[in-house]
Design a protein around this nucleic acid. Structure first.
Ligand SMILES: [Mn+2]
Ligand SMILES: [Mn+2]
Ligand SMILES: [Zn+2]
Ligand SMILES: [Zn+2]
Lengths: 136, 136
DNA sequence: TTTCATTTTTGTAATCATTACAAATATATA
DNA sequence: TATATATTTGTAATGATTACAAAAATGAAA
């Protein structure tokens, strides 16, 4: 996570005007680190911003993804999730408790055979199974 | 791909009654190997089976997935794709031509640091970039 | 073969996430 | 202040998927 300073500045550094709503959405992502859906973000923020529209959440996340400060996490069908951590990392989903874990991996370890001369731009690694807390 | 014999037998081996529609759907997956969406399967098969319902495609694929003879490929948002190859393999999507490539990789190479004592049941690896045919 | 239960398929309606779009509001500039 | 531009909002439209009940097919008694 290359986010250190305050959120407004971080957005500006990435050529995004830091509106109140945008700051709130990014703040949510950074604070919670929970790979939320649009709905999760909306339900939480509408408490602070009663006039908030779900369209704004969609617009904002789209903008963040375009400016590469947020990445899309596509794990299960029909639930797009978002992540303020845009570094190369994978996700583990526990099939018992449903929790999503981040983990690091080395791209170089993947050693693909069939893809000689392909230019790999991005890797997405998603694992599922049982997390350590759900083991007997 | 552990599919050798005829499709009806293969379905029976997996405790699925081989109805005409089910055979056709599985046949499509095996013949095309194109990771199709529900709609692609429907549009093709409705030529053979004019009374075919899209619901049947959904039902059938759900059944196949439950019986583990078909796996779900979730790459882009809002397009669930299906694969009759349930062996461990990854997918590469070319961002120029859009084609989806299969490739093999070794699970043992993954050796994740942060996930000690986690039980990994399934891995999903998806890469994107430029395929060899689209390179200058 | 007829009867009856069970399974499968079909068609339609409902749901849910996402997008399109235009009006309203806020912000920036002259 | 006046005006242009950017952002937010609300509503309607779209599209994939699911729910559900009726129709059709299948399979096993009788
Ligand atoms: Mn993450
Ligand atoms: Mn495949
Ligand atoms: Zn768990
Ligand atoms: Zn290509």
């Amino acid at each position: 996570m290359k986010f250190e300073s305050n959120i407004g500045d971080y957005l500006k550094e990435n050529e995004i005007k830091p509106s109140f709503q945008r700051i709130k959405v990014f703040e949510y992502l950074v604070d919670k680190m929970n790979h939320p859906t649009v709905d999760m973000i909306y339900k939480e923020l509408v408490n602070d911003i009663p006039t908030l529209s779900k369209t704004t959440i969609y617009n904002t996340l789209k903008l963040f993804v375009e400016h590469k400060i947020v990445s899309v996490v596509n794990i299960e069908d029909n639930e797009t999730r978002y992540d303020a951590d845009v570094s190369n990392h994978g996700h583990f989903k526990c099939s018992k408790c449903g929790k999503l874990y981040d983990f690091n991996y080395e791209n170089s370890n993947l050693s693909i055979k069939n893809l000689q001369n392909f230019k790999i731009e991005k890797t997405h690694l998603y694992l599922n199974g049982i997390c350590v807390n759900c083991m007997d």
